[in-house]
Each structure stands twice: as C-alpha cells, then as structure tokens.
Amino acid sequence: RLRIEIYNEFGATASNPPIDPSSIKFAKNMVVSFSLTGITGNLKNNAAGSYVAGLEYSDPSWGGNYWSNLSMGKYEAMVTGDGTYTVWMEVSSQANGAIVFCVDIAGLGADIADWSKVGVEVNAIKLDADVEQAVNQSIVSFGNKDGNGVDGRIEIYNEYSSSGAAAPGAYNSSMKFNGMMLVDFTLQGIEGNLKDGASGNYRTELSYADQSWDPSYWGGASYGGATVTGDGTYQVYTYLKGNSEGAVVWTIELYNLWVQLADPSKVNVTINKVITPGKY
C-alpha cells in the first residue's frame, strides 16, 4: 500500500513532524483533503487502476480512533489517478492529539512504475467540520423511474421533472463538494402495501450528476447501495471524482419496487441528511 504519513510516533515523522500532533482535537469528525500527482500514466501494465484510500488514526489514549479496513465505506475515497481526494472519520467522544495519523491507499504502491514521479500534498485538515448539505424537502417526491412501470424513484432534484419546474437550479449555487456524497433517508408506506408474491427486497442506489453533468454516477458500483426491505431508514452513497457543484439529476433508484406496490401513493419519503465531507 501507499502511505501518506502525516504523523506517526512510531514512524519517520516522529522526529520531524509536519504538524503539531497536540493540535488535533475534535469531538465530532475529522476531514482530510489530499492531492496526488504522478499517478496517471505511471502505472504498471495490468494495474488495477482504482484504489481505496482511508484514514488510520488514533489519539494517544488509543480510545479515539479509526482504522480503515480499506474497503469502500462511507469514510473512504476511491483513488483513480492524479487529483484531489477527501477521506474522513467520526468519533462519539472527544479526541485529543495524535499518536498515529496516516492515509493509506490499498494496492497503489505495488502498481506504481516510477516512484520518483509521485507527489503528495495534504491540502487541509478540518476538525469538527460542517459536512451536511441543506435539502429542500418540499420538492422531494416518490414516483416511477422514467415511466418504466417497474422501478421506484426518490427524486431529490431533477431538472427535467416536477422538482426542476418547482425550483429551477435549486442546488447550483448552494452545493459544492469534493468526493463522497451520502444520502440518509426514511421510507414509510411500504409495509402492508405490497402485492401478493412481492419479493420484499429491493436493490437501491444513488444517481447523481452535477450541473455540468460531470462528475456523475449512475449506479453499478460494488459499494454504496442498500437493500430496502420495508419501512425504515437507509443510506446510499457514492464517491465522485473531483469537485461537484449543484445538480441536474439527483435521485435514488429502488429497483422493482414500483411494480410490486399495491398503492404507490401511500409511500412517503423523508431525506434526513445529505453528507458531503468534502464540502466547500
């Protein structure tokens, strides 16, 4: 793996730390932004091409910590070449200081052809950052995806649908972020409202395109989805390459749900929160 060592009491930075480890104090979260250069065009033949990055952190008590398992969870980043990336963590109690503070990138080290070309910069360390985006709940709706008669769709915003007509460009000036987008939502009106023989399990994914259509995500990743099994609260997420601003399409797809509902009008949706750790 490739390691970005910000501070490690047991590593090379112990004798000449680039930060004051005692200054790392937070009660809710820590967000780290970093940039990589010299990766694009510098990978070995048959390299994977995409690599999970995550935080490895502990305060001196070893109580406040996060040890990424480098699978693509909501705290990680998907590195695909040169660019700026955001990783983060949350804690349930105060963290004071740092004894280990690194970003690891799984598998990348073995795939680099020429290490002398690689550059790393830590752009920002944000403590107790504001990571949430405001959502206009009044234009959120549940309906049928593209009129296909099969799939359900939660429409947070769609320039080409009712929400776009009600609030044109609703997020184009207010929502700016790098990397991860996570949507936490609650569904009601599914239980007791399914047709006989319904599966009761519905694959669910986020769809999103920023106002310029790039970055965008249209599902299909091996991470970030959910399985809706009835009324309840769920999370979906994706990691977008680069910076995103605004939205032209922003939906959650619930595959095969619409066709199995007895009365779709009974389904209600609440967007509880939208988390973008790389908010700027």
Rank of each mutant, 00 (worst) to 15 (best):
K74D: 08
E5N: 13
K273I: 03
A129N: 04
V52T: 15
G54K: 13
L108R: 11
R153G: 08
W213M: 08
L261I: 06
S141E: 09
Y217E: 02
E205K: 06
S199K: 12
G41V: 00
T229P: 09
N8H: 14
P277C: 04
A53K: 00
S92Q: 11
T227L: 14
S265K: 09
N46R: 11
Y234I: 08
N42M: 10
K241S: 10
G246K: 08
D184I: 00
E155T: 11
A165D: 09
G169I: 07
L2P: 01
G64I: 06
S162H: 14
L127W: 05
D146E: 01
T37F: 07
I19G: 00
N8V: 06
E253F: 03
N96A: 08
G64Y: 05
S216N: 14
A166I: 02
V274S: 07
V87M: 11
D184M: 00
N96Y: 02
E121Q: 13
K195G: 05
N148C: 02
N42H: 05
N69A: 00
V122N: 11
W218Y: 11
G73Y: 05
S33Y: 10
Y85E: 13
T238H: 10
S33A: 15
L55D: 11
N46A: 13
G169S: 12
G119K: 15
W67Y: 15
T204M: 13
A113Y: 04
G149A: 10
V228I: 01
G107L: 03
G197V: 10
D214Y: 04
G63Y: 13
N178E: 09
P264V: 00
T227M: 14
D146V: 02
S141M: 07
S265T: 09
Y255S: 11
G97N: 03
N8P: 03
L240N: 03
R203A: 09
T276E: 12
F185K: 03
L254G: 14
Q137S: 08
C102Q: 15
F101P: 02
D59F: 05
F177S: 09
Y223I: 04
L194C: 04
L127G: 06
G169V: 08
E253C: 07
G164P: 01
K145W: 01
E205L: 06
L108H: 08
A53L: 06
S216E: 07
Y51M: 08
Q211I: 13
V150T: 13
K25Y: 07
